[in-house]
């Protein structure tokens, strides 16, 4: 894919460090993500890639370094942080749809409660988004009544309803049955085509190859490689990346 980056980057991490007790989960990580760029983060489990993703909307606070979103340092707490989070969509591994609300209510909750939009406006956009991800006919069901793939697509619609400047995906297909992975990746691919800025933590190498502008490889909390997908998969530079790829690509 061509380089789509224009202007100043949207997300900038500068020398970010984080510890869980004695465990150094993020070790001096610096990264910048341009507007409209799709960055896929891969690496062995425990490498810190999910934590990295979660620091960007401060679901995980960091111990040192700075994170800037759209030219602004991440606020520490309170209203400013809530506002920032409303501008960054997040999709979780376990969907995390609100279990006591219908699919449509899940999608309209943010716009009505955070943005104070009119219910009718939010419903209209919500239904359009559900249609876009292919589950408009499930709007009045509860999350537990949907398949995993449908739930994850609803979760993507919920995040999109806030009209975010960027979307974070934390292993969005890892909890899905294999036959449902495709439908979620299709939605993500179409988002990427539409120019959404995305940070995607995933094990789906196919998605990384065809939808990413850049692939980030992490190991032991360190950002080891940062390359275009074709280059990364053809010629990984580090031993860790070669080892990782040899393990997953031989099957």
């Amino acid at each position: 894919m061509d380089d789509v980056t224009t202007g100043e980057p949207l997300i900038v991490l500068d020398s970010v460090n984080k510890w869980f007790g004695p465990l150094h989960v993020l070790d001096d990580v610096s990264l910048s993500v341009g507007r409209g760029e799709v960055v896929v983060v891969i690496g062995p489990s425990g490498s810190g890639k999910s934590t990295l993703c979660r620091t960007i909307n401060r679901l995980e606070p960091i111990n040192s370094g700075t994170i800037t979103f759209d030219g602004q340092a991440l606020p520490a707490e309170g209203k400013a942080l809530a506002k920032l989070r409303s501008e960054v969509g997040m999709v979780f591994q376990s969907f995390n749809l609100f279990a006591h609300k219908t699919i449509l209510e899940n999608v309209t909750l943010g716009p009505t409660k955070v943005r104070k939009e009119k219910v009718a406006t939010a419903r209209e956009r919500g239904l359009a988004l559900l249609d876009r991800v292919g589950i408009a006919n499930q709007a009045d069901k509860f999350p537990a009544q949907l398949s995993g793939g449908q739930q994850q697509r609803a979760a993507i619609a919920r995040a999109l309803a806030m009209q975010p400047k960027a979307m974070l995906f934390d292993e969005p297909t890892s909890a899905l049955d294999p036959e449902m992975v495709g439908e979620v990746l299709d939605v993500m691919t179409s988002l990427a085509r539409d120019g959404m800025t995305m940070v995607v933590v995933t094990h789906e190498m196919g998605f990384a190859r065809h939808a990413a502008n850049r692939v980030i490889f992490m190991a032991d909390g360190k950002l080891v490689e940062d390359a275009a997908p074709t280059e990364f998969f053809a010629n990984p530079r580090s031993e860790r990346a070669k080892d990782f790829l040899s393990k997953i690509l031989t099957h």
């Binding site: 809530a82 997040m90 995390n96 919920r158 995040a159």
Partner: peptide, 27 residues
């Protein structure tokens, strides 16, 4: 209530009070 419920609520920009009132306490 699974922690993911509160995380998802915070991730769409709900405040602490809203997260508690709209998402966590009803469940």
């Amino acid at each position: 209530v699974p922690t993911g419920q509160a995380e998802a609520a915070r991730a769409i920009g709900l405040s602490f009070a809203q997260t508690l009132r709209i998402v966590v306490l009803p469940q």
